[in-house]
Simulated assay, not measured.
Amino acid sequence: MSPLASVCVCDDYFEVDDDGTLCLKAGTMGMRERLIFVTPGNFTFEKADYPWLVRIDVQVQGGGGGSAGADAAAGQCIARPGGGGGGYSRSLIEASALGAVEAIVVGAGGAAGVGNNPGGSGMASSFGGVVANGGDGGNAFMTSGTAPDAVNGAVGAPGGVGQYTSGGGGSGAALRVSGTAGISGAGGNSFFGFGGGGRGDPGAGLATRGRGGGAGGALSYGAAFNGNDGGGGMVMIDLYG
């Protein structure tokens, strides 16, 4: 009969529990799971659902701003700027610092403006105390006319709360050259998304891509067009064991 083999185990990564079972040490397993919340609304994270949890890396994206509608009189022009991009925040949190239940909020993008109404502001997203602000909606300052005019875009969302924070991108300005020539503004970019494009032909505001971008502005040469909704926010949690 062959002698029993001798096995050595690295104690940097393994330990033997009280029952004699060889186990990986907590904190050495790396990322084990990723949770992504993109539906606007309220959710919860319960630490007890993950008994192996050592820390989390949480990234939070705020909602982008919507763009204004445009309804110029016949033979006239209205150009709208885009909505502002939502902010971004990130924190690495030890499991011992988490509450038993942490609140999660996914902020909706701002609503599209109808008629000559401004776009709505994006809503903030959060995980516990980690907060990313929403972007401002596109304004409706330009009135119907034929004379040259220009209006500023929306300022991007300010930095929120977290170990690392970043504001959202500002949106493009809108320009009217005459009653038949103008350019609407592009929406502001975000960490996880792009704003809707500007336009030189008449039409509704253009949609965002990804998460948290601002909507592109509408352009009217005598017909009514709505703005567009800003991109919704997101909360992404990487769980480490």
Results as ranks from 00 to 15, higher is better:
Val155Ser: 11
Ala181Arg: 01
Leu175Gln: 08
Gly193Glu: 13
Cys77Gly: 01
Gly195His: 01
Asp19Gln: 10
Met31Phe: 11
Gly113Trp: 04
Val130Pro: 04
Ala150Thr: 11
Thr208Pro: 04
Ser125His: 06
Tyr164Asp: 09
Leu24Ile: 07
Gly128Asp: 10
Ala174Ser: 08
Leu35His: 05
Tyr221Phe: 14
Ala181Trp: 00
Gly63Ile: 01
Gly185Cys: 07
Ala108Glu: 12
Arg209Trp: 15
Tyr164Asn: 11
Ala154Gly: 13
Met236Ala: 10
Ser171Ala: 14
Phe225Ala: 00
Ala157Gln: 03
Thr44Trp: 06
Ala97Gly: 08
Pro81Ser: 04
Ile183Gly: 13
Ser67Cys: 12
Gly82Met: 02
Thr143Tyr: 04
Met123Pro: 03
Val7Ser: 11
Val54His: 14
Leu98Asn: 08
Glu94Pro: 00
Val16Lys: 08
Ser144Met: 05
Gly162Asn: 13
Gly230His: 01
Val151Trp: 06
Gly138Val: 02
Tyr221Pro: 00
Gly212Pro: 07
Asp12Asn: 06
Arg209Ser: 14
Met142Tyr: 01
Val161Ile: 12
Gly196Asn: 00
Met142Trp: 03
Gly169Lys: 09
Val7Met: 10
Gly230Asn: 03
Asn133Gly: 08
Gly20Asn: 09
Ser190Phe: 03
Ala124Gln: 10
Gly227Tyr: 09
Ala124Met: 08
Tyr164Ile: 14
Gly205Ile: 07
Gly145Val: 05
Gly188Ser: 14
Gly231Ala: 07
Val58Gln: 02
Ala48Ile: 15
Ile183Ala: 12
Asp238Phe: 03
Ala70Pro: 04
Pro158His: 14
Val54Arg: 13
Gly138Thr: 00
Leu53Ser: 10
Ile78Ala: 02
Gly87Ala: 12
Leu35Gly: 03
Ala103Glu: 14
Gly159Thr: 15
Ile93Met: 10
Met234Trp: 01
Ala207Gln: 10
Arg32Lys: 15
Ala5Cys: 09
Ala100Asn: 14
Phe194His: 04
Tyr240Asp: 15
Gly210Pro: 14
Pro81Asn: 05
Gly162Ala: 13
Arg32Cys: 13
Thr28Arg: 01
Ala108His: 05
Ser184Cys: 11
Gly172Ala: 11
Phe37Leu: 01
Met29Pro: 02
Met1Ala: 13
Asp19Met: 03
Gly75Tyr: 03
Gly210Tyr: 15
Val177Gly: 11
Val130Ile: 13
Phe127Glu: 05
Ala111Ile: 15
Thr28Val: 09
Ala215Lys: 00
Val177Arg: 11
Glu102Arg: 08
Thr44Met: 11
Gly188Lys: 09
Ala103Gly: 12
Cys8Glu: 12
Gly241Lys: 10
Gly203Asp: 04
Phe37Ile: 04
Gly113Tyr: 09
Thr180Ile: 05
Gly107Ala: 03
Gly83Asp: 01
Ala140Trp: 12
Asp201Val: 08
Thr44Pro: 06
Gly115Trp: 00
Ala186His: 06
Ala73Trp: 01
Gly145Leu: 06
Asp71Phe: 09
Pro51Arg: 04
Ser125Ala: 07
Gly172Trp: 05
Val54Glu: 15
Lys25Phe: 07
Tyr240Met: 10
Thr143Phe: 09
Ala112Leu: 15
Val106Arg: 09
Thr39Gln: 11
